[in-house]
Write a protein that binds this DNA or RNA. Sequence first.
DNA 1: TTATTTCTACCTGTTTTCAGGTATTTTTGC
DNA 2: GCAAAAATACCTGAAAACAGGTAGAAATAA
Lengths: 211, 211
Amino acid sequence: MLTDPATLAIVDDHPIVLEGLQKLLNNVKSIQITGCFTSGMTFMSFLKENKVDVLLLDITLPDANGIELCREVKAISPETHVLALSNHSERSMILQMIQNGATGYLLKNISSEELVACIQEALNGMITFSRGAKEIMARPSISELKGIPQLTKREKEILQLIADGKTTPDIAQQLNLSPLTVETHRKNLIQKFQVRNVAALIKIAAQQGLL
Amino acid sequence: MLTDPATLAIVDDHPIVLEGLQKLLNNVKSIQITGCFTSGMTFMSFLKENKVDVLLLDITLPDANGIELCREVKAISPETHVLALSNHSERSMILQMIQNGATGYLLKNISSEELVACIQEALNGMITFSRGAKEIMARPSISELKGIPQLTKREKEILQLIADGKTTPDIAQQLNLSPLTVETHRKNLIQKFQVRNVAALIKIAAQQGLL
DNA sequence: TTATTTCTACCTGTTTTCAGGTATTTTTGC
DNA sequence: GCAAAAATACCTGAAAACAGGTAGAAATAA
């Protein structure tokens, strides 16, 4: 099959890494490196003028954080596949990147063959992880999962409404309850989650996937 | 290599699906089906007595929702790999399942060979997706990404503190600012996100991966 | 049928949040 | 250097949230 090679850009603040990746990927015919950048800003201005099929993004940058940069990239150019390239091996970080539009996550200890395979998979429109990242994703930390208080049906219901920005009077009316009752439930929620106010409550609930 | 076959359980409220999967997987020597259940409750009591290496979990159940069930399973038995099996093809749903401890997500249109391969990958301690799920994950909805207001450094900082349950006086003290200033930032955050109160603010921020 | 949990509702008083502004001083980008 | 953006700070008053209780009715499980 003869098609145009895919365009690839790299953002990494270590010039050594940049060179290494360049050398490595230059041998791959299906990929054409069209840009290397050491900061998020310079890449963003490049992206506005040029098509980029795949971006290898080191998420630890001096000027901006990788998560936001990833989102900005996808906002401007949804068809660009962002592959995070990082030493961060926390599951939550990987999840955040994916949540913010990354097509994959590669740990920096990745082998060159694996790297090419992952880029190829991204080009085919599939999410992809390096071996190490796959293993991390399969091992959720126990603390992430437990420690979720047992909520009653009513409490879950009210939690949702609170998260939607409804006030106590709103909720009371919607559920045909006394505002005082709603207040009680709200109080119980705060107590069960051991927090001071709804802000912290909603944060935990959201992070636990309850919303 | 001769090792004990891996134990596998299935939870699905459609008996037909249950039978189909059973028949399909009975031919696979490395896998032994040790239980089939049509409700979350019955499976949970089974799990307390028996080791389960892999659980195929239909996330649309009558009695409990799959997300919570998944978390409960992992809380009791972290070594059990939960593979969600579902028709739901929303990216957010897949993400939620992963966030809640699932080792993988399989769309129900999966082929039998792929199913076996995915189970194998889960047994090897790797996250795994069916082909369709991989494609969905690589295509974040634009609406998910954009529409995030531009926040200043200070606003981000204060947003974090609010999410941690800090009150305006707390934040003012911590940042050496007037409480009135903090109030202004708080107000601007609420306005930028177009919400009524912090509850809704934190929910959106969390869902956008800003926290 | 009990025991337990859940849901309901109430009270008081304090603190915090929110809505509606205005306005000066720094930073930052061009 | 200048314009724009960001950060700072202020004011008032109303609404909502929070702390710290108590307590009866209804549903559920043992």
